[in-house]
Nucleic acid binder design. Sequence first.
DNA 1: GTGTCAATTGACACGGTGTCAAGTGAGACG
DNA 2: CGTCTCACTTGACACCGTGTCAATTGACAC
Lengths: 198, 198
Amino acid sequence: MSSEITETRSRILESTVRILEEHGGKGVRMGDIAKESGISRQAVYLHFASRTDLLVAATRYLDEILDVDKRLAPSRAASSGIERLALYIDCWGNYIPEIYGVGKALMLARDSDEAAAVAWDDRMAAMRDGCRAAIDALHADEMLAPGWTRPKATDALWAMLLVPHWEALTIECGWSTKRYVRWMKTLAEQTFVRQTNS
Amino acid sequence: MSSEITETRSRILESTVRILEEHGGKGVRMGDIAKESGISRQAVYLHFASRTDLLVAATRYLDEILDVDKRLAPSRAASSGIERLALYIDCWGNYIPEIYGVGKALMLARDSDEAAAVAWDDRMAAMRDGCRAAIDALHADEMLAPGWTRPKATDALWAMLLVPHWEALTIECGWSTKRYVRWMKTLAEQTFVRQTNS
DNA sequence: GTGTCAATTGACACGGTGTCAAGTGAGACG
DNA sequence: CGTCTCACTTGACACCGTGTCAATTGACAC
C-alpha cells in the first residue's frame, strides 16, 4: 500500500513535503494534505495507512531527492578525524533546515504515536552513527581530547547536534544556518579535539 | 476561577504534579487528573478553565514549593562572573529534573495551544535572563571570551541549557544529572570564559 | 460492452477537550 | 426545623481530527 509507486502517490508526497515545509510541520491535517494534492481526504488513505505512515514515507521521499548518501561522501572520505568531524557537521547542519518541516511533524506525532516515535528515533540513531564515526576517526588519530571516552563523546556530540538545538538558535534566536554551522564546528572542535600547544 | 485558593484546588494541583511526574508529562488526560484527585472530570473545570490553565497553574505551584528564588540567591550573590555562571548552571541543571513532568506536558501542549506556547516561552525567557546576567557578569570582569558579543553568547548559553538538551543526555543517553551539570559547566566555561595562559 | 480500479461521496466510530443543565448533599443561618 | 448556598455529581452533548466503510462514478483496457 505505502510502497507501490503511482502518480497520485507521488503527488501526495510532494504536497505533503511542501505544505509541511510551509507550516513548519505544525497544524497540518490530513484534509489539508488532500486538498493540496487535489484529491479527497479518504483517497489519501488509499495510499498511506495512517498519518504517521505518510510522514515516514515523506521523509524517505525527501532523502531520495536530497541524495543524502552523496552529501555524506566527503565526510566519509575525509583523510583525518578533524576533517571528518567538520565535514559531518557541515553536512548535517545544512541538512536540518531542508528536512525541518517533515521532521518537526514527525517529532510532534512522536508523543501520541508509537510508530512515529520509532521512525524518528531511527533517524536520530542514524545521525548518532555519523557522530560515532567522527569520534572514532578522531580517536584513531589520537586526537580525541583527554577526558573523553568514545561513547561519552558520541553522546555529547549527538546531543548538541539534535534538531531542537538548531531550532533554538535559528528559529528562536534568528541565527543563520551558516552561523549555526560555524558555531557547531567551533564547539565540536574545542570540545573533542585534543588541543596541541604547538 | 484559577486564582482563589481552596482545598480541592490544591489537591488538583498536587495530583497534577504527581501524575505528570510519574508519566514524564506524556499522555495524561483531564480524566486521569480528576481520578487522581478523587473528583469528577467536570469538577476540575470548576477550578481551571482549561487543561493549559491547569498546567500553567501547576508550574507556578511547583515553583512555590521548590522556592526558586531562594535557590537562585547564591548565583545572584556570586562575587565573580565565572562563579555566577557556574552557580547558575548548578541551579538550573538541578531544577530541570524536578519540573520535567509539568514542563514536558506544557511543551507538548505548546504545539496545539497558543496559550501553552506563551506560558512555556515565558519560562524560557526567564531562564534566558539568568543566562544574560551570567554573561554580563563575565563581561563586567572582562572575562568574556574573545569573539563573543554579549547577545550572541547569551543565545548560545541559553540554547545549550534548554530542556531538550538535558532530555537527550539524561533520558536518552542515560547520563546522571550530576554528570550533565558537570558537563554543562565545563562546556560553558571553555566556551565563554576567556582562557588565560598563566 | 463489460470488467477493473482509482477515486468520490457521505456516514460513522473513537477519543479527548470543553460545555451545559439538572440533581445531590452538607454546612450555615434564620 | 426548614431553607439557602455552594461545591460537586451525573449524564448528555458539541467539536475536532483520525481512521473506516459502503455505495457510486468514471475512465481505460480488452
